[in-house]
Write a protein that binds this DNA or RNA. Structure first.
Lengths: 338, 338
DNA sequence: CTGAAAGCGCTTACAG
DNA sequence: CTGAAAGCGCTTACAG
């Protein structure tokens, strides 16, 4: 049915080996023969079978991306979109394809990963998330399979990873609020088994400490487990209401602002807010959102760069890459900034 | 290095053929031998090489998704996220992997598609967009390669496709505005070479006609070419300003609302608005966005279902599938609806 | 510079 | 039920 290397060889009056040589460009072929072969390839619309190439070359020009059960996991939704954009921009440039999988549970994720790796379907893998004691990381390490982690691994500093300095990022958010005169600063965090959330928690507490403010248990909430309404009521029913809020995600932040509005709590007058995961929408809403911009796009892009280097066994100068963050002051955290 | 079918065969004292038979489950194997082989496979942590399987079976258990140069194409951003969620939900269920590619230009997209198809890397393809005279569609048709179109093909009704009734959807949007008492209804559309935009334009005009309203050229704009500020000024400088706006996308709509606010034009009092591409954020902003909900998730999910059927040569009852839409009335288009 | 041969890891008629 | 053989489409030492 479809034309193979043999058809080309026959038509060109050479051996399959020679055709292969002009395809791979590794070895030298007589210029004229090469020309003839190329002409025939075009005439016959020959296109190498990548699967067959992979089988012998043992490489696929494909990298895998493991999506956390994204459908359910609204709470970091925007993060994934942006990171994917970064990944695509770099894979397109490096001529890699992207194979994606997911699983609804950790076990399914692990299963999916094993299928990709053991089935030799990808040359390397990007993990979008870092959990404490992540079985997937353990598997990949044991297998010696190339992968890059977006995030930080607690147990092992020698893993190839791209991350923000999340401790510092959240520290800076606290500092921003302190500079606005706030003393009661609360924090809506994500699931505590994610390293990124642990780090931000640490930065939050350090920030309070350095500002001479007390750390209060009732000022931290896992936002992934609460509706915005619950979160708001929890904070608002405290004897000492917070006056500033640091939130894990733009979407979550917008949801909180809406709820505040319904309760006639003004942002930023009664409650100053700043959130992570800067997205384009943050500038389109009212009030515009103050952000800790962690440059998610760059996170994805760098991850691919590192992975490709690792796959090609190029030298990598350092194994932990930090993408700088930036505080973006807008209306939701600064009085009279419209 | 990694364990192959031969290793298993040797360890189990059978031939590679037999091992293959217990893997594929097609043919009958003696229960006891099968058991023994399975045990050895586990002990050795054997996992079939999918690439090798693909080469002989000529199928990959992978479907391809062609992303339009998503990075640049902010204007339909939200659409893609949602459609991908739908695609993933169904591929996970059907045990297919998803291979993605993009290109920065149409030529690059075509090239990427040809690589996937001719390289035999995927069993079928999903196209996220339908252009007039799309060279990619022409290529796939010529090749006889399984694919599903999200959208509608103008020239050929026999293509397998999932779509909304976009004519009706936009017609309904006009009707909604007419029911609110509006007579000057403008339309911010997308690029006119997309079939979806053409269809909506037709629905828009038919809606006006049926309401006895004039069709005015200066009431339609290609929003993908204008900044929101330009769009707003264009409309606002008209001798007869529109009082209602139908917008192609939530994000674009939010951007317009922000610009209106800055110019002290109230939504919905001075300008009623409704947009396509319903996303979760639409309910989180102020005012909440009225939407024509086209159920993008379902669009993606159905596309996979159809493609899988086509790949497996199952019978498909009809080639055009229509996902129903729904008008969602919220604050941005209805007075006093808070 | 080029061809014949072996092999990548698997599957599948073909015999038995 | 099972094994030996051929083959999927390619690449790569090995000779020449």
């Amino acid at each position: 049915m479809s034309v193979t290397i043999k058809d080309v060889a026959r038509a060109a009056g050479v051996s399959p080996s020679t055709v292969s040589r002009v395809i791979t460009k590794h070895s030298t072929v007589n210029k004229l023969t090469a020309q003839k072969v190329r002409k025939i390839m075009e005439e016959l619309e020959y296109h190498p079978n990548i699967i067959a190439q992979s089988l012998v070359s043992k490489s696929t020009s494909t990298i895998g991306v493991l999506f956390p059960k994204t459908a359910e996991q609204l709470y970091m939704n925007l993060f994934f979109i942006e990171v994917i954009r970064g990944i695509f921009s770099e894979t397109t440039a490096s001529m890699y394809d992207v194979l994606t999988t997911t699983g609804a549970t950790i076990d399914e994720e692990l299963q999916a990963t094993m299928n990709l790796v053991r089935g030799k379907r990808v040359d390397g893998l990007i993990l979008l998330q870092s959990r404490v004691n992540d079985p997937i990381i353990q598997f990949l390490q044991a297998e010696g399979f190339p992968f890059v982690l977006i995030g930080r691994h607690v147990q092992d500093d020698s893993l190839l990873s791209v991350d923000n300095d999340n401790v510092k990022a959240c520290y800076d958010a606290v500092k921003h609020m302190v500079e606005q005169g706030h003393e009661r600063i609360a924090f809506v965090n994500g699931p505590s088994d994610l390293v990124v959330c642990k780090d931000r928690q640490a930065g939050y507490e350090q920030g309070l400490k350095d500002a001479g403010l007390p750390i209060r248990d009732d000022y931290t909430l896992d936002g992934s487990q609460f509706s915005s309404f619950q979160a708001v009521s929890t904070f608002m029913s405290l004897p000492e209401r917070p006056t500033a809020l640091i939130v894990q995600d733009d979407l979550m932040c917008m949801d909180l602002i809406r709820t505040f509005k319904e309760m006639h709590i003004r942002v930023p007058e009664d409650m100053a807010m700043i959130s992570f995961n800067k997205m384009s929408i943050g500038g389109l809403v009212n009030p515009t959102l103050s952000n800790i911009d962690i440059d998610i796009f760059q996170l994805g892009k760098t991850a691919v760069e590192l992975l490709v280097k690792q796959i090609r066994s190029e030298k990598i100068e350092q194994c932990r890459w930090i993408v700088p963050h930036q505080i973006l002051s807008r209306q939701s955290s600064v009085l009279g900034s419209s």
